[in-house]
Simulated assay, not measured.
Amino acid sequence: MGSSTSVAAGRRRHKARDRLLLRWHRWLGLLALVFLLLAALSGCLLTYKQALIRAIITPGITLPATYGVAQMAPQLEVIAGRIQGDSSGYLIKAPNSEEPYWTLTRDADRQVQLLAWDSLQPHQQNLWLLQALSFIRELHTELFAGVVGEAILLVSGLLGLFLALSGLVIWWATKRSFRWRWVLPRQFNRSYLMHYHRHSGALMLPILLVILLTGSIMLWQKLTQPLLTPPPPTQLPRAMASAASASAGEWLAFAQQQVPDGWPTYIRLPAPGVAAVTVRYRLPGEWHPNGRTSVKIDLPDGSLTLSARADEVDWPQRLINQNYPLHSGYGMHGGYKLVVLIGGITLFWLSLTGGWSFIRRHH
C-alpha cells in the first residue's frame, strides 16, 4: 500500500514538473518567436550566398589553377591606386576558387564591389543581388539595430537552446508515437500542428543545437569577451626594409613569405589613421573560409607581427575557430552546407508551427 502511494506521488510530481516545463517552453518560445523566425529565414537565404553570386553575377567565371600570389601582387597595386585618396578604408578580399573575383568593401557605407580577377573591371550584371544580400546579412546579424540587435539575437539564441532541449524532454514521453508523416506530411492539417512541431524538432535536434550554439558563441564573443583568450601574436625579428615606401604588391609578397603555405583572404592597406598592412590567410585544410592566421606589417618601421597559426593553437581554440563555418556552412563540404540549410528551414518551421499553435490555443 505504501509503495503504491509512493509511486502515485512520484507520478504526480513528474506530471507537475512536465506541466511547468511545458509552460516555460511555450512562454519563452513566444518571447523569442519573431527573432528566431527572422534569423532562420535570413540565415537560409545566406547559406548559398556565394553560389547565388556565382550563378547570377559572375556566371561561368572560374579561377585558373595557376593563379596565385604572383598574379595577385600586381593586381593589388592597381586596386590600391584606385582607392588611394579615399578617406574611407577598404576591406579587400582576394580571389579564391569559391569566389573567383576581387571583393572590395568600403568601410564608410559597407558598399560592395566585385572586380574581375583578370581585367579588374567591375562586374555590372545583376548588382541588385549584392544589395539584397547586404540587406539580409544586416537583418541576420544585427536586426538593423546595431549592438542592441546583436544583444536581442544573443538572448534569442540562448532561448532557442533552451527550447530545443526542453522540447526534447517534452517529446520524450511520446517518442513511441514518432511517425515520418509528422515530419514530412503529405497533406498539411492544422489539427496536427503540435505533432509536426514536436517530431520535427526531435529529429533535427543535433543540427539545431549546433546552429544555435555556434551563433550564440559568436555573438557572445563580439558583445562581451572571447570565451578563450587567443594566443598573443609573435613579434618576428625580421623587418621589412623601406616598408613605408613599398608598394601594395611588395607588402603582399613580403607577408606571403611568413605564411608560404597560406592563401591570402582579407587584406587591409594603410588608410587615414591606420599605418599598417594586414593580410589574413587560410591554411591548407582549414575549415574557416577566411582563415584565422594573419600577418601585420607596421609602418614606417616595417616591424612584423605574426598571429598564432590556426593549425598550431590548442584544440579548444581550434574549436572556437570553427564556429563560423559550422554555423554558416561556408568553407565546408556541400553535404554539410545542405544540412545547415535544412536546419535553418526546420528552425523556421518550428517557430512558425509553435507560434501558430499557441495562437490557436489562446483564441
Rank of each mutant, 00 (worst) to 15 (best):
P206R: 08
P100G: 02
D311E: 00
A132M: 14
T5L: 14
G157L: 02
L227W: 11
G355I: 10
A39V: 09
L347A: 11
G302K: 06
Y90M: 00
S42C: 03
P264F: 09
A80C: 02
L236G: 00
A243Y: 08
L161T: 06
M240E: 04
T214R: 13
N321G: 07
L28R: 04
W27E: 02
P260Y: 07
I217R: 12
R292D: 12
P233K: 03
A202T: 09
R190E: 12
T234I: 14
L306R: 06
S4A: 13
S134N: 11
G335R: 11
V295N: 01
I79G: 08
W27H: 07
K49M: 07
Q322G: 09
R309A: 13
G329C: 01
L139Y: 04
L168H: 07
A132K: 00
R360N: 12
R137P: 00
R110H: 09
Y266P: 11
A253K: 13
L319T: 14
L205D: 00
L338Q: 05
P300D: 06
I92E: 02
Y324G: 06
R26F: 15
L306I: 12
L45D: 05
R110S: 07
V78T: 14
V7K: 14
S200E: 04
T47F: 03
L143D: 03
V340I: 10
L208F: 04
S242G: 05
Q124T: 14
R190F: 15
L319C: 01
I359S: 02
H199S: 13
P316E: 01
L139M: 07
T105D: 04
E138Q: 14
G68H: 05
G344L: 01
H363M: 14
A40I: 08
W102A: 02
A173M: 05
S307N: 03
G167S: 05
T353G: 02
G2F: 09
Q111W: 11
A132C: 15
V210K: 01
Q131M: 13
N323D: 02
L120C: 10
I170D: 05
A94N: 07
H327E: 00
Q131L: 15
G354V: 06
P231S: 11
E142F: 01
Q125D: 13
F358T: 03
A276Q: 13
I57N: 10
A253M: 11
P233L: 00
L184M: 15
H199F: 15
R186L: 14
G331F: 05
V7T: 15
R11H: 08
D18N: 09
Y90G: 05
Y101E: 04
P206D: 08
I57H: 06
S177A: 12
K175M: 04
P100K: 04
R110E: 09
K296D: 10
R268C: 06
W128C: 01
D18H: 00
D314Y: 03
P100V: 04
S242V: 10
G262A: 06
Q256G: 08
V274S: 13
G355V: 06
A51W: 07
H327I: 00
I320Q: 12
W172Q: 11
Y48C: 07
P272T: 11
D314R: 08
V259Y: 05
F162E: 09
S294W: 13
I217K: 06
T234Y: 06
I345V: 10
P237S: 08
M194W: 15
G285L: 02
W171M: 12
I79T: 00
E98R: 12
P232H: 02
